[in-house]
Structures are given as structure tokens and as C-alpha cells.
């Protein structure tokens, strides 16, 4: 469609585009390359070695990286619980508001955007007393931190779910299902959720990405997660810290790439009928 634009003059020429993206891309690649180079260095002696990478899978160094594996395990647990909060708390509320309280949609959107204005560093000031209280009930186990992460994830998860929910006519779909005799559970389970699969997948992935990268709240509430562990180990073994930083950047990049792929396949399907089952045949249900 936009193929005609370049000839008219809005879009840059191929050369200009290549030049801009090439220069800026090269500048932005430098820190990443530097990280790779750093992770291959053989101490201060000079020369290169793969030993920092291989030591990661070396059983002898398990004890050395215990804090890292604990942090990683904690972050994964937090990611799971946070995704649970998004899917079991946010999603049903969004569906309910969409179907029964259209007027509250604005309010819900406003609430979900608040965490952008109230940054984590401010939130954590108020979270400290809240978590002192929570600690007295649930103890200081790591998973309770997911309650706070559910809030930081809110703007991202809301936006991805809302764009999916807005694209399908949830009211008509559920009315149609209801009039065919379906009860609310099967409307939800067999009609709405299958149609929301992309949004659910994208919201889950983006939540995982946010949780894996979270540092502020964990560190100031003195909990151990992946990021605090990376920072901790960087003091004793900077190479491993850089390797883990690289790997987690890569992992999040891949997660987001999948979200992008899942998200853009929709426009092609939109041309077919609204209730397009065929384009949902991707085996993406979790």
C-alpha cells in the first residue's frame, strides 16, 4: 500500500535510509560488541578465551554461581506468579468491564496507566511498609514480590490485552454464544479466550520480560532476583555478570520478537470474517 509513497517524496530514499540506520545502528551495536568482547577476555593478561562461557556449564563452579542460580530461580518464580496475576486478575476484570461496564473502560485504562506516572522508585517508598506488613503474614518468601510486579507490569499488559480485546467485538460474540445456549463459563472459555489468545500470549511475554529485568523494587526491598544477583556477582566475577546481562538482553529480545510476530499476523487475517477460526490454528496455547 505504502509502496507509492517513496516516489512522491515522504519517505527517504534507499540510500538515505541505509545511511541513517547504518550509522546509528553501528553506534548502538558498539556496547553490545564490547560486552561480547569483554566476556571473551582472558583476565588482565590479554588474549581471548572461552573459559568464562564454558565455566557456566561446568559443574565445578556451581557453588560459585549459587547466588546467580538462586536469583534466576526467584525471577522465574516471580515471572510465573506475575503472569498469573495478569491472567487471573487483570484479564477477567478487563473482559467484565468490556461486556458489562463499558463506562468503566476509561477508569480502568486510567488506573492501568498510573504506574507510568508513579515510577518504581516512588512506589517502593510506600511498598516498604506494605511489605513489612505482608512479611508478618506470609513470611518473607520471594513470591510475594510478584504483587508489586503485577503493578509495574500493568501498563504493558493492559495495552497488549486492550488492543486485542478492542479488535474483536466481545459483546456480539458473547451475546451470540449466550443466545445459542452457552453459559458464562463456556462463553469465557470457549469463545472469548480462544479469540484473545494473541493478546494473552503477548501480555504474558511482556510481563516475563518486565519481571526478568526488574531491579529497583527487589533491591530496595532487599530481595534477591536475577538483576540483583547479576550486580552482586559483578563485584567478584565481572565476566559472568556481563555474560548474564548479554543473555538476558538476548532472551528479552527474542520474547519481544515473538510478540511482534504474533501481533502483526493479525492484519492479514482481518480481511477474512471476524470469527476467523483458521488464523488461530497456531499451537500457541500455553
Amino acid at each position: 500500500m505504502s509502496r507509492t509513497a517513496p516516489s512522491i517524496g515522504a519517505a527517504p530514499s534507499r540510500v538515505t535510509r541505509g545511511l541513517i540506520l547504518g550509522i546509528i545502528g553501528a553506534l548502538f551495536a558498539i556496547p553490545i560488541i564490547a560486552m561480547i568482547e569483554f566476556s571473551l577476555r582472558d583476565g588482565l593478561a590479554g588474549g581471548y578465551t572461552l573459559s568464562h562461557w564454558t565455566s557456566l556449564v561446568d559443574p565445578a563452579s556451581v557453588a560459585k554461581y549459587r547466588s546467580l542460580t538462586t536469583g534466576l530461580g526467584n525471577s522465574l518464580l516471580l515471572a510465573v506468579v506475575t503472569v498469573g496475576i495478569v491472567l487471573l486478575l487483570l484479564l477477567p476484570t478487563m473482559i467484565l468491564v468490556q461486556l458489562r461496564f463499558p463506562r468503566l473502560r476509561r477508569v480502568l485504562e486510567f488506573i492501568c496507566i498510573i504506574p507510568i506516572t508513579v515510577p518504581a522508585i516512588v512506589l517502593v517508598v510506600g511498598l516498604a511498609p506494605v511489605y513489612r506488613f505482608i512479611g508478618s503474614i506470609f513470611g518473607s518468601s520471594i513470591w510475594t514480590l510478584a504483587f508489586a510486579y503485577g503493578i509495574t507490569v500493568l501498563p504493558y499488559a493492559y495495552r497488549t490485552l486492550a488492543s486485542n480485546l478492542g479488535a474483536l467485538d466481545a459483546i456480539t460474540l458473547s451475546e451470540a454464544a449466550r443466545s445459542l445456549g452457552a453459559g458464562w463459563p463456556s462463553v469465557l472459555w470457549r469463545v472469548l479466550l480462544p479469540n484473545l489468545r494473541r493478546g494473552i500470549l503477548a501480555a504474558s511475554f511482556i510481563s516475563v520480560a518486565v519481571v526478568l529485568g526488574e531491579y529497583t523494587i527487589a533491591s530496595l526491598l532487599s530481595r534477591q532476583n536475577l538483576q540483583t544477583a547479576i550486580l552482586l556477582i559483578s563485584k567478584s566475577d565481572p565476566y559472568v555478570a556481563v555474560i548474564f546481562a548479554l543473555l538476558s538482553l538476548l532472551l528479552v529480545f527474542l520474547l519481544l520478537l515473538v510478540i511482534g510476530k504474533v501481533g502483526t499476523r493479525r492484519p492479514g487475517a482481518r480481511s477474512s470474517k471476524p470469527s476467523s477460526k483458521p488464523d488461530l490454528t497456531q499451537g500457541v496455547a500455553s
Binding site: G213, T216, A241, V252
Partner: peptide, 9 residues
């Protein structure tokens, strides 16, 4: 999602 990782970079 950069956060701490960017510091290392």
C-alpha cells in the same frame, strides 16, 4: 528492560 544490563554494557 535494559536497566542494570545497560550499566554493564
Amino acid at each position: 528492560f535494559g536497566g542494570v544490563m545497560l550499566a554493564f554494557a
